[in-house]
Design a binder for these strands. Structure first.
Lengths: 196, 196, 196, 196
DNA sequence: AAGTAAGCGAGACGGTACGTCCGGTCTTAGC
DNA sequence: GCTAAGACCGGACGTACCGTCTCGCTTACTT
């Protein structure tokens, strides 16, 4: 078994190229938007061969997704403050702060767009990005559910849909930047009964 | 004033071509997905010249948007049943039924995707599609707001964001088709206090 | 019999349009060269409809040919000075003077070019332009032949070929403008034995 | 110095594609005439990409010129039989035989036509084709000039003009194929005084 | 040390679609 | 019935990228 990659003969993957490619992708997206991002441009700006990109990433969207992962700490902290309102507010605060950065916004929109057009990427996007963030929120919501803090007759899954749905809708459909007031309002809607 | 187009000399726009183009676009999207839709293919399948398409639509996304408008009655009925829960359920029912048709889903996803990538189209998409549907719901929500039926501290705009956000998120990010149960749950969340 | 065109019903051909078209063609050729001459451009610059051009001329080359005919008096005078040398010199002098005008050169080159590419035009070009000029020279050469002034064993047709051949070659293949010295040299070659 | 192309990195030019393109161009010209030759057709018939053609040739006329060069041995032999008449007849014999092949005629006419319409190509056509053939004849004529075999008062350049002029005129302006009798007559005109 | 196996930048390759231009035709309203 | 205007279908233009395929070179492990 070749589980240990160090054992195989041949030149090893160049970390310098990997980073040059991700950096070039990020810069090009910031400059001209994802719409005019091309593999050829990434290669040119990173002084890299196209083949190297095709060898390691299935599509330019995957390059963008990895560039985003590299640039931001996508680890989602799972707070546990004892009540749903506080936990939810903490998660929203983190998420909003992240999504508000213009370069992050641009990439998020592009990834969601590409997922609509390219089914194979959609799967990777869901499993590598969306599901991870869902899981973090799910933990909190499940806990609240157990404590009886959710609105009556609303399963945890739906709460998660509402939170991420509202967040994504604002990013995708509304030109104004994400507003922190929205976070408070979401808390009021979803965690209405702050137990005395 | 040249408001009356019949007064100008020259051949008039061909309604037959317009419909052939929209039909071809719709069919091609249904068959191969929006990702492989090209102007050239639309022209070929509609026995039409590319120039004719470029003359009347700014982009293939606009063709798709018009095809959607032609195919579905996008007029949004504004119910008035006297209470928010019933009104909201009626709107959701209509919207879900529409968005559940596979061909409609496919086009909706494509339009939202294109709007992320092409800013000029994004503006047209918002003003010609998103805003219209927002306005319908807004009427209902404003009415509820006046009656004091909204959750405390939640302005109508946010309610609209939550409704459409959840709907779009399910369409864009979740592979499963839209579920009618979700409509009930949204009503429970947003119109909780059925006045005694 | 409809020999009298004034008797037919309907609007008569517009002489103003005819001249506007020829003038626009001449001007466009002078400006940008025949290579970028298009029917559409002629129509635009002459404030005329494309249909009007297609109705009266088989191709843009025919427009150019008529523009040339209108602009220059293409009537070829047939001198008769009593000896071949003087007659030939007179014909060459007229022809060179005509072909030396830059705008005429440009059109001549274009017509000969088009004749290589479009067989139908080639026939019209030969019968309406080349043959006429050949006939003028032929009269002179035949007369010289009868007087025994041609080189021995050289039929009149060949003399005509040599004269026009040399002239056209200089126009088509040599960037320098036509030189009057050439006329003298042709006379020396073809009418060498000025009979004492 | 990068004179050695083998030193550069990257895939090398494909000789197979080069030949397929030239062959396709030659065949298409023979079939449908130069007038309906398009880059797109060449690419299709040679199972080649358009870009490959644009990469290596400035225009379709240059493709045709190279196809001609490849197909015919354009090397012009320079005979030296001791007298102008014999040398000239030898050159004419070779040239006529070449120009009489229908496929060669077609290309020659097309190249000369294109040179009238495209100035940049005209320069290449002169330096890569016309001038070479002129030089061969010039050698012979200069030699004759030194021996005093030219008509009095006629410089070598003019003799060359007359020879090629007549040849080209017959090809371009006269529908009949080149006649060998013409060669004899040209010799009689230009090398009349076979010195005793 | 030689041999073998990968990865690298570079760049040509066969394709496909782009958006534009023009050809030649058809359809208006107006003279 | 001609005219200007202008839309129509069709097709080639020259360009941009796609994803693949050589190249010569470099870097690593294996013998």
């Amino acid at each position: 078994m070749d589980a240990n990659p160090a054992q195989r003969p041949g030149r090893r993957r160049s970390e310098a190229s990997r980073q040059a490619i991700l950096a070039a992708a990020a810069e090009l997206i910031a400059q001209d938007g994802y719409g005019s991002l091309t593999i050829e441009n990434i290669a040119r700006h990173s002084a890299t061969g196209k083949q190297t990109i095709y060898r390691w990433w299935p599509s330019k969207a995957d390059v963008a997704m990895e560039a985003l992962a590299d640039k931001t700490d996508l680890q989602v902290p799972i707070p546990d403050e004892g009540n749903f309102a506080a936990d939810l507010r903490a998660v929203l605060s983190t998420s909003f702060a992240l999504a508000r950065q213009p370069q992050v916004t641009e990439i998020l929109r592009a990834l969601m767009a590409e997922a609509q057009i390219d089914d194979a990427f959609a799967q990777r996007f869901r499993s590598q990005f969306l599901e991870r963030r869902r899981r973090a929120l799910h933990t909190i919501v499940d806990r609240a559910h157990a404590r009886g803090e959710l609105p009556a007759g609303v399963p945890p899954d739906t709460v998660v849909d509402v939170v991420f749905g509202t967040l994504w809708y604002r990013v995708l459909a509304i030109p104004a930047p994400l507003d922190d007031v929205l976070a408070d309002e979401l808390v009021r809607i979803l965690a209405p009964a702050s137990p005395g």
